[in-house]
Structures are given as structure tokens and as C-alpha cells.
Design a protein around this nucleic acid. Structure first.
Lengths: 142, 142
DNA sequence: TCTTTATCTTGACAAATGTAGAGTTAAAGT
DNA sequence: ACTTTAACTCTACATTTGTCAAGATAAAGA
């Protein structure tokens, strides 16, 4: 997937770390950005609503995310470990989006915007949201 | 990466085929969408402008794309085989984008639009371009 | 306290992916 | 015709990824 350059600060020493998440790992991260904390059984529960997958599989993904320092243990209740995101959505999404544009749209951001707005139907909600964004930007120009 | 459902038509028989391209494979496809035909040495040449990679590696990727029916042999000049895309950019991008939104933005398209448009300030040109698109879409809803 | 149950840990494996060396062979150059 | 070169084919391999079963173990319930 994407190679995320993460800048970590260990008491005044700045280090660069590369984080690379797989598709499944990225999918799981969504939940931690949404809910701030979650346990493996909970994640399993949610993912299971979409497709068939065992607890073991989900837990393995979570373990790998922990090893990659994308998740950290937050607290424990009984035997249950609660994890939380150790890296923000924004930090990950930015390089991932750039990589996606590079690989799938040949680096042409406009193409992506085009595709998004022309080839996929926008809901009325999407449209008013977009209108709003534009209006805001418009102000900066006046 | 993404699972692309491709509808192929073999003399009146419609078949569904799943196509799954890796990141590198997707990257290589860009060139074939851009140039309509290219040889392995040419692709190698272009990719090499960005990173270190041997001809062998590139050729392997092309072979795999051929096996997946994403590329087809178009013509031969001497020993050199020229390939061309056997699937359109649009067909591939659509499911890939959807998958990306799902996995990276938790299915929230507006988040993506937000990222795209707020990342950098829009030029007046961008704005009028967008306004135009919106107006067009708006019509579909009325 | 003893049993049941839920959660975790460990180890494993096939398939996909990125990577490339070695060897073959057909063109091209001399 | 002979040699050189460029492109191809084939094989291989380490790593990553998705997947899970089996076993250990702690908490909860009887």
C-alpha cells in the first residue's frame, strides 16, 4: 500500500519512521479513528457485519498494527485489551491519497476530481457540501 | 488492491471476470493508458526515471498484467513486443476509487472531497470549473 | 472451588507481490 | 558468416498479506 513517512519525537530526538499499512490494516484503522478505542472482539464484530472472517484473523491484523505502532494498548478490562490509534487519520490519509493519485490516476489530481464529480453520481447532500466548500473559498478571493 | 469486476463479452456470451491489480501493476497500467502502446524496455525506461528497478522486474509485471488480461500484445518489431491496455482506465478506476474511499476514508466521500479541495487553496479557475460541474449535476436532480 | 467461556497467544501456511539473476535467442552490426 | 547486443523466457526467492486452528489462560458463573 502506501508508505507513510512519520515523524516521531522521542524526547527531543526526531526520528523518521516508515509506516506501511495493508488494505485490511487500513480498513481496521478506520474503526479506531471513529471510536477512539476498541477491543479485538469489538472490531471483529463490526467487520463481521460485512464479510465472513474469524476472530483470529482480526486479532492478527490488530497485532500487526500494534507492532507497526499504528495502534497502542489503551486499557484493559478483565482479559479484554482496548486499543486506540497511535497515528491520526490525517497523517495517514494524506500520503495515502497522494500515492493513490500517483498510482491510479497517474499523478493527475484533476483527473481524480473529474472522475469523482462526473463519473460517480453525487447525492444532493454531496452537492450542497461541495457548494459550501466553494463558497468558502470564493470569499478568500474577494 | 482492488477487486475489479469486469464484464467481458466473448461472442455473445457474457462472462464476469475478477481482475485484481497490485500497486506496481496499476502503476504500469498508467503508461498504457497514456501511450496506447509500449514495449517492456520503454516501460522500464520510464519507471527507471523515478526509482531503481531492473528490466527483469518490469517485464515480470508486464507478464503478469498480460496473464491477467489487463494488457494484450499489439504488435512486434524485431524481438520487441508492443503491448496495449486491454481494459480502460475508467473501468479500473471506478472500483478502485470506491474501494479506496471505503478503506481509507471509511466510505465517506465528502471527507475525500474535503481533502482534495482544502489541501491547497483553489484558484479562481478551479472554482469556476467546479461551480460549473455543480450546476450541471444540480440539473440531474431537478 | 470447579467448570465454562471468552479472549488472548502462538504458530503456521498459501497466495500475492516485488525483485532479479541466468540463460536463450533473434536481430543487428561488422 | 560471425560476433555482439538487446530483448525475451524461465526460475527463484524473500516478504507481505490474508487467513485461521490449536492451545493457553484468566475471568466469570455455578
Amino acid at each position: 500500500m502506501t508508505n507513510v513517512e512519520l515523524k516521531l519525537e522521542y524526547n527531543f530526538i526526531t526520528t523518521f519512521v516508515d509506516m506501511k499499512l495493508s488494505e485490511f490494516e487500513t480498513e481496521v484503522m478506520q474503526l479506531f479513528w471513529k471510536y477512539s478505542k476498541a477491543s479485538a472482539p469489538e472490531v471483529h464484530e463490526v467487520i463481521s457485519q460485512n464479510r465472513e472472517v474469524t476472530y483470529s484473523t482480526v486479532k492478527t491484523i490488530i497485532d500487526r498494527l500494534e507492532k507497526k505502532h499504528a495502534l497502542k494498548r489503551k486499557e484493559q478490562q478483565g482479559r479484554t485489551i482496548y486499543y486506540s490509534a497511535a497515528i491520526s487519520a490525517k497523517k495517514l490519509r494524506k500520503p495515502m491519497l497522494n500515492n493513490f493519485i500517483q498510482k491510479v490516476f497517474g499523478g493527475d489530481k484533476q483527473q481524480l476530481i473529474n472522475h469523482l464529480l462526473n463519473d460517480e453520481p453525487l447525492s444532493e447532500d454531496d452537492i450542497s457540501y461541495l457548494q459550501n466548500l466553494i463558497d468558502k473559498q470564493q470569499k478568500h478571493h474577494d
